[in-house]
Design a protein around this nucleic acid. Structure first.
Length: 576
DNA sequence: TCCTCTTGCGCC
DNA sequence: AAAGGGCGCAAGAGGA
């Protein structure tokens, strides 16, 4: 069994091409053309199942290679190497952040040819969005006539060479772990889109009706409750008609009654002593649900009892995932009522408790902070040791330190933290200084942040005249790098947890693969597994084991613990 | 009419 | 005086 196998689907049919590789990426045999790629892949995957894993599948990108294969595979694949994701990690690590990362771009760099830009993502502003661009082979950006399989093999070998060339063994080991975890993320993302999050449209519908009134029969008309609120609002402000969705009209309507608002933000309105302000807050809450997750959303995204967003692995520079379509990572809490396990199934919902401060403790090896993060409620322990038991102060101070907050009454809290936890505070402050000086920082596993020029340097402004604005920009950059080291290292941990959990779930017994527990949601520090009811306890145990495995792999020998809050429920809304 | 920018708010 | 990091999405404003 070859340790790796390059895989290229035939864009126009069920077939494809394969080539066995060793771990360095050298071919172990000739390319092979197969008429049924799914069958050929499944056979090779199964051949390894007795103790030995199947090959690590090497492909250009999961959305073009794995997603189309998934419906035709009898079972999930164990491991992959996703060239596009790994290229992005390596480019950033090598100080070439933002260079095109498609297979064609990587191959062209290798051959010294002009490098094509990456195509805009489907659904983004720049793409003219033909329906089937997603799986089209030209997204690989290979020059005409280039052999895709040869390109996959060559780019993979080059990536393996670049990884092996990292001089520091520990850094090399960590980046290889990140490469494996990021690739596993690509598998999870494709599978979660394929499986979908269980979504009861009947419950969703009932919630919407309770909040907004019945679904309008004429599309585009406002639901009853919103229309009524708009009228009440108008009357409360003197009766002249205005559009509550228009910021400028709202500001004018309030101004006409002698109320000067700085903005129409809810938190500001909540402090305004006038009935119209409270009506507007309510209007905005309901109007948002209607616009963002109402009936139109349901029609577009939640058909057939499943919500199937597209996840974008590594879509955030910190390594957090992003999503495309349906606001997958912003489902309002109230609508989680509609996420219900199938009959005979349950949801195992687990989220990491106070992940980011724990990550800071582990990163900085601050002995005192590590003691507060050795168990239970971190903020409680922090409060007991440094804030006279005031948990709110402890939390506010620590969050402020991680985000770079300077406002409010936070100064004394930061001073206390600086005095009691010098290593932890020194760690974030060093990251902030690096950013202010225009440098880059990296996560624990080696995900490197973008350089200052990308988002923070205003080129229209000469440095010598920048003055005030330049200082503001530098401080903003400092807050970004200060937070990056923590957010990105937390994302490292979560990604490794995800990979470890997926491996454990796939090892659970199931008479048919469709009856196996599977991930249905992942949101930064939280996972949801849909499982046959009889396996729920094993799934809960698997999540705990995966979290501890992630701790060990990412942070090694640390006293810091990363406890999970785990709930086994019918309905997502009951988890917290 | 189309497009980009801004605002505001949902989630972590 | 300025004032907490990261996103996606929808609507309005306003220019082309």
């Amino acid at each position: 069994m070859a340790p790796r196998t390059a895989l290229v689907p035939d864009p126009h049919g069920p077939g494809g091409r394969l080539q066995p590789l060793d771990d360095a990426g050298s071919p172990l045999g000739p390319p092979e053309t197969v008429p049924d790629l799914a069958a050929a892949v499944a056979a090779r995957e199964a051949a390894g199942s007795d103790r030995l894993p199947g090959p690590r599948w090497v492909w250009a990108a999961a959305d073009s290679a794995y997603a189309p294969l998934l419906p035709r595979l009898p079972d999930r694949l164990a491991r992959c190497h996703d060239l596009r994701l790994v290229e992005a990690l390596l480019l950033a690590h090598e100080g070439r952040f933002g260079a095109p990362r498609s297979l064609g771009a990587a191959w062209s760099r290798l051959r010294g040819l002009p490098v094509p830009d990456d195509l805009p993502e489907p659904g983004s502003a720049e793409s003219d969005d033909g329906q089937d661009t997603l799986f089209a082979p030209d997204r690989l950006q290979l020059p005409p006539g280039a052999d895709p399989l040869a390109a996959v093999v060559a780019v993979h070998a080059e990536q393996q060479r670049r990884l092996a060339a990292i001089p520091d063994p520990a850094a090399r080991h960590r980046l290889r772990l990140l490469v494996a975890a990021e690739s596993a993320g690509a598998l999870v993302a494709a599978e979660m889109t394929h499986d979908g999050l269980p979504w009861r449209t009947d419950i969703h519908d009932r919630l919407l009706t309770e909040l907004l009134g019945p679904r309008p029969t004429v599309p585009g008309t406002q639901p009853k409750v919103l229309a009524e609120l708009a009228v009440e609002l108008q009357q409360a402000l003197g009766g002249r008609p205005f559009n509550p969705d228009s910021h400028s009209q709202v500001l004018r309507a309030f101004a006409d009654r002698g109320i000067q608002l700085g903005s129409t933000r809810s938190w500001e309105l909540k402090g305004v002593d006038h009935p119209a302000a409270q009506l507007l807050v309510r209007y905005k809450e309901l109007s948002r649900i209607h616009a963002a997750h109402g009936w139109a959303w349901q029609d577009a995204w939640a058909r057939g009892g499943r919500f199937r967003p597209e996840y974008v692995v590594g879509g955030v520079v910190s390594g957090r995932w992003a999503s495309r379509g349906g606001g997958a990572l912003q489902i309002p809490r109230i609508l989680r009522r509609a996420v219900v396990a199938d009959p005979g199934w349950l949801l195992v919902v687990a989220d990491a408790a106070q992940l980011e401060p724990r990550v800071l403790a582990a990163l900085s090896q601050d002995a005192g902070l590590a003691r507060t993060a050795a168990g239970g409620d971190l903020y409680e322990a922090l409060a007991a040791s440094a804030f006279h038991g005031d948990r709110d102060k402890a939390k506010l101070g620590l969050l402020g330190a991680m985000y770079g907050q300077t406002s409010g009454d936070i100064g004394p809290l930061l001073n206390t933290l600086r005095h009691r936890y010098p290593a932890a505070m020194g760690y974030v402050e060093a990251a902030a200084r690096t950013g202010e000086d225009g440098g880059v920082v990296a996560s624990r596993l080696g995900r490197v942040c973008p350089p200052a020029s990308a988002a923070f340097l205003d080129l229209t402004e000469a440095p010598e005249t920048a003055g005030e604005a330049g200082g503001r920009t530098a401080r903003a950059r400092g807050r970004f790098t200060r937070n990056f080291v923590i957010q990105a290292s937390a994302a490292d941990w979560a990604l490794v947890l995800l990979a470890a959990l997926r491996r454990r779930l796939n090892a659970l017994p199931a008479t048919v693969p469709a009856d196996r527990p599977h991930l249905v949601f992942f949101q930064h520090d939280e996972v949801v597994v849909h499982t046959p009811a009889n396996l729920a306890d094993e799934v809960a145990a698997a999540v705990a084991e995966a979290a501890d495995e992630a701790r060990l792999l990412v942070f090694g020998d640390t006293p810091v613990r990363f406890p999970l809050t785990t709930a086994v429920v019918d309905c997502y809304a009951d988890a917290k």
